[in-house]
Structures are given as structure tokens and as C-alpha cells.
Simulated assay, not measured.
Amino acid sequence: MVEAAAALVYVVEDDPEVARLVSLALRDFGFACETFGDGAGVLRRLQMEQPDLCIVDLGLPDMDGMELVREIARRCSCGVLVLTGRGHTVDRVMALEGGGDDYVVKPFEPRELVARVRSILRRRGAVAPGMAPLQRRHARFAGWSLDCAANLLRAPDGTETLLGTAETQVLRAFLERPHQILTREQLMGARDLSPLDRSIDVRISRLRRKLEGDAQNPKIIKTVYGAGYMLAAAVEWT
């Protein structure tokens, strides 16, 4: 059975040392993490992929942190934790009312920060490292269904096909994040994937031959040139 993907956290912090400290703490506890030095960078990234949680500093070089918290809340359903040197009550209230889930004042204890991240994800139903994952086995999409435990793909007409483990892993990655652009590295579950490694393209080609009426003009698994691939279908889990 495919393991649940690590919860993804975006860290928006213009102080490189603080960003490094937060990232190390998160990765030490099993989270996936990306860092951004300004608000514009994370807003661009949100167009490509939405995280499970954002950690946002209020003192950013290009925009007001409160504005960024509100914009993230408007664009994304992820959790938001404000990490800032501002300890005034009015800042705390504004951040929480603007869409923040929690508020941590610098200096901070890394393990407490991780505990607060876990707490937000737990309240939102996301799976954080060390938390028991939801046992989601069957997925329905575009008339198809996948039994993730048995690697069994069922067509709209009832025809069943046994998928290989690698194909099931890729298809489940799509089903876990429909309508989101996934990079080749994310689909392979590997970091620093060589540009010459075409394994993922082969797996997607095999899936398209099974899922698509015309594999050359796919409607379910779409290519987003220069970015990755996307599942263009609603998904229902049971």
C-alpha cells in the first residue's frame, strides 16, 4: 500500500537564518517544506501547488504580512500559522481574524512550533507525520474507480485491470491532489530527480493508455508544459 505523502508546509520568512531554523525543525519531524523570502514568491507558488499549511512572517520586504495572510486564506484552504516578532494584542487579533489559525511570537522554541503545526493540521483533518492517517482505500473519478489496497482499476463499464505498484503509486498521487499541478519529483516521490530520468513519463503514458479514449489527446491526466502533470477530474474517496 502506498504511504501517505508528507504534509507540505510553506515557510514565508525574509530572515534566512530564521527560515533555515524553521525548515530544519519541520524536516526533522517528517514534514515536506519550501521556503520563500517574500509574499510575491509564495503567491506565485500557490498557483502551482497548494500546501497543507503556511507559516507567515508579518514583516516581509514586499507586502504587509496581514495582507498576505488574508490573500492566502482567500486563495487556499490550507492552515496558516503567523510567526512574527510583533507581540502586541492588536496584531494577534488582526492576524487571527484575517485568516490565521495560530500566532507564535519570536523568539520561539522549534519543538513548540512543530507542535502547533501538528495541532492546526489535526483540526483541519490533514495528516501530519506521527499522526494516524485516514484509511482511504477506494477513489472514484471520471467514472473510474481505484482500489488502492488491491491495485485494482475499474472502468466505467465494469472492466477490471490490475495495475503495477508503480502505476498505482502515480495514480494515487494524482487522486490525492486533483486539479493541482504535480512535478515529476512529486509524482515519483523523489527529490533532485535527474532531468534525464523519464520513468515518470513512461508510467503516465501507461496510465493514459488505460484511462483515456485518445491517449494522444488526454482529458483526465493533462500535461502542463514546463511544470508537470495534473488530474483534471473530481475525486470522491470512501
Rank of each mutant, 00 (worst) to 15 (best):
Leu187Tyr: 10
Val202Glu: 10
Ile181Cys: 09
Gly164Val: 07
Ile200Cys: 12
Ser199Asn: 10
Ile220Phe: 01
Arg209Gln: 14
Thr168Arg: 12
Pro218Val: 10
Arg198Gly: 07
Gly213Ala: 06
Ser194Phe: 11
Leu196Asn: 14
Met188Ala: 11
Asp201Met: 11
Asp214Lys: 03
Gln169Asn: 05
Ile204Leu: 04
Val202Arg: 07
Asp201Glu: 14
Arg206Asp: 15
Glu167Phe: 03
Glu167Arg: 06
Leu207Asn: 06
Gly213Asn: 04
Ile200Leu: 14
Arg177Glu: 00
Arg209Trp: 15
Gln186Phe: 11
Arg172Gly: 00
Arg177Met: 00
Leu182Ala: 05
Arg198Tyr: 12
Arg172Thr: 03
Ile200Val: 13
Pro178Leu: 02
Ala173Gln: 09
Asp192Arg: 14
Ile181Pro: 02
Asp192Gln: 13
Leu207Met: 06
Ile220Glu: 00
Leu187Gln: 04
Pro218Asn: 12
Thr165Asp: 02
Gln216Phe: 04
Thr168Gly: 09
Ala215Cys: 03
Phe174Asn: 01
Leu163Trp: 12
Met188Gly: 08
Arg177Asn: 01
Ile220Pro: 00
Glu185Thr: 09
Pro178Gln: 02
Arg177Thr: 01
Arg177Phe: 00
Leu163Gly: 10
Gln186Arg: 12
Glu185Asp: 13
Pro218Thr: 08
Leu175His: 06
Arg203His: 08
Leu182Pro: 04
Arg191Met: 02
Ala166Glu: 09
Leu171Met: 03
Leu211Gln: 00
Ala215Ile: 02
Leu162Glu: 05
Asp192Glu: 13
Arg172Ser: 01
Leu196Thr: 14
Thr165Gln: 05
Val170Lys: 15
Asn217Met: 14
Pro195Gly: 09
Leu182His: 07
Gln169His: 07
Leu193Arg: 13
Glu185Ile: 09
Leu162Ala: 05
Phe174Tyr: 01
Leu211Asp: 00
Leu163Glu: 10
Thr168Ser: 13
Thr165Ala: 05
Lys219Ala: 07
Leu207His: 10
Arg198Thr: 11
Leu211Phe: 00
Arg172Ala: 01
Phe174Gly: 00
His179Thr: 00
Ile200Gly: 05
Arg208Phe: 01
Asp214Ala: 06
Gly213Ile: 04
Leu175Lys: 06
Gly164Thr: 07
Ala215Val: 03
Ile220Ala: 00
Leu163Thr: 13
Gln169Phe: 06
Arg198Met: 11
Glu167Ala: 06
Gly213Ser: 06
Arg206Glu: 15
Val170Tyr: 15
Val170Ala: 15
Leu162Met: 06
Arg203Met: 07
Gln216Trp: 04
Glu176Val: 15
Ile204Glu: 03
Lys219Met: 03
Arg206Ala: 14
Gln216Glu: 07
Arg177His: 03
Glu212Arg: 01
Val202Pro: 06
Gly189Ile: 08
Gln186Gly: 13
Lys210Thr: 08
Leu163Gln: 11
Asp197Trp: 13
Ile181His: 06
Ile181Leu: 09
Pro218Asp: 12
Arg203Gly: 03
Gly189Ser: 05
Arg203Lys: 07
Ala166Lys: 12
Ala215Gly: 02
Leu211Ala: 01
Leu162Arg: 06
Val202Gly: 07
Leu211Tyr: 00
His179Ile: 00
Arg184Lys: 13
Arg206Met: 15
Asp214Pro: 08
Asn217Ile: 13
Gln169Ala: 07
Asn217Gly: 14
Val202Trp: 07
Asp192Cys: 12
Pro195Gln: 10
Gly189Asp: 08
Ile204Tyr: 02
Ala173Glu: 07
Leu187Thr: 03
Ser205Ile: 00
Gln186Trp: 11
Val170Ile: 15
Gly189Met: 05
Pro218Ser: 10
Ile204Val: 06
Asp201Trp: 12
